[in-house]
Amino acid sequence: MGLLDRLFKKKEVRKQPEDYYDISITDDYVMVEHPKRDIEKINWDEIQEISIVTTDEGPFLPDVWLMLMGNDKGCSMPQGAPKYDEVYDIVSKYDGFDFEEVIKAATSTDNAKFELWKKNKN
Rank of each mutant, 00 (worst) to 15 (best):
K36W: 09
T109R: 13
P35A: 08
V64D: 03
N43S: 10
D27L: 05
D38K: 12
P17M: 02
T109N: 12
V102A: 10
E33N: 14
G70K: 06
L4K: 13
A112S: 14
E40N: 07
Y84N: 03
K113V: 13
T54N: 11
L7V: 12
D110W: 01
K121D: 14
M31Q: 15
D85Q: 15
I50Q: 10
F97Q: 07
S76L: 06
D85S: 13
P35S: 04
Y84W: 13
N71Y: 06
P82R: 07
K113R: 11
P78T: 08
V53S: 09
G80I: 03
D27T: 10
M67G: 00
K36L: 06
D22E: 14
A81V: 01
K10Y: 00
E18S: 12
L66C: 07
W65L: 11
K118R: 15
E100T: 12
I50G: 02
G70Y: 06
G70M: 05
L116C: 13
E46K: 05
I90W: 03
D56C: 10
G58E: 09
D63S: 15
R14K: 15
L3K: 14
C75K: 11
K119W: 03
E12M: 06
D56W: 05
L61R: 11
K36I: 12
L68S: 07
L3N: 09
T109W: 11
D22G: 00
D85T: 12
N43Q: 10
K121R: 13
D19K: 10
T54I: 10
D45L: 05
N111S: 04
A81C: 08
I103H: 09
M1Y: 04
A106M: 12
D19P: 03
G80K: 10
N111H: 11
H34N: 09
W44S: 08
K118E: 13
D19W: 03
E115R: 13
S92I: 00
Q79C: 10
P35Y: 06
W117F: 06
Y21H: 06
K113E: 13
M31T: 05
E49Y: 10
F97N: 07
I23P: 00
P78F: 06
F114D: 04
Y84F: 15
